[in-house]
Amino acid sequence: MELKGGAGVKEVFIDISRCVGCKSCEIACAVAHSESRSLFGAIAEKVPPRKRIFVHAVDSSKVPINCRHCEEARCVAVCPTGAMFRDEQSGTILHDPERCLGCGFCEIACPFGVITRLPERKIVAKCDRCPDRQVPACVEACPTNALLYLTPQDAQKVKRQRVVAQFVAS
C-alpha cells in the first residue's frame, strides 16, 4: 500500500509563528460546509454549519488545529460501522454521515480532539480537506499564511531551506 502523502498529494500544514488568532479559518470552514457556501447565506440557515478547524491559544501563542488525516487513524480503527474511512486516492480520512451512529468512539480515539458534533443531525463531522475545492477553505482564508497547503515533501523542504539560509547568514 502506498502511504498517504505520495507525490503531489497536499496536506494542510501550520506555521504557528504566523498565526494571529483571527479565526478566519474557522468561519471559512463553517461556510465551506454550509448549504449555501456563502457567508451571508450561511448565517441565515436553519441548521448552522459547523467548523472543523479550531484556533486555540497557549500563553501568547495561537495555534489552529484540525484533522491530521493520520496514517494509522484511530478514529477509523474504532468506528463500528465503517462510517469513518480512509480514501486511499486522496490520502484523507473521510466520514460518511449515512453510516454514522453518533456513538462518539471516534471522538474518544482522536488524540487531537478535532472531531466535532452536528447536534442537530446527531452525528459527528470532521475535516474533509474540502474535496471540491482547489485549496481548502481554511488555507485560502488565512490572511497571514499560517496555514499552508503543501505536499509533506515541500513542507519539509521549505523548512530545510530556511535553516540553510540561517546557516549561510551566520
Binding site: 468561519i27 457567508l39 485560502e140
Partner: peptide
C-alpha cells in the same frame, strides 16, 4: 479576499 467574516457580519 477573502475578507474577514467577523467584520462582514
Amino acid at each position: 479576499q477573502p475578507q474577514c467574516g467577523f467584520g462582514q457580519l
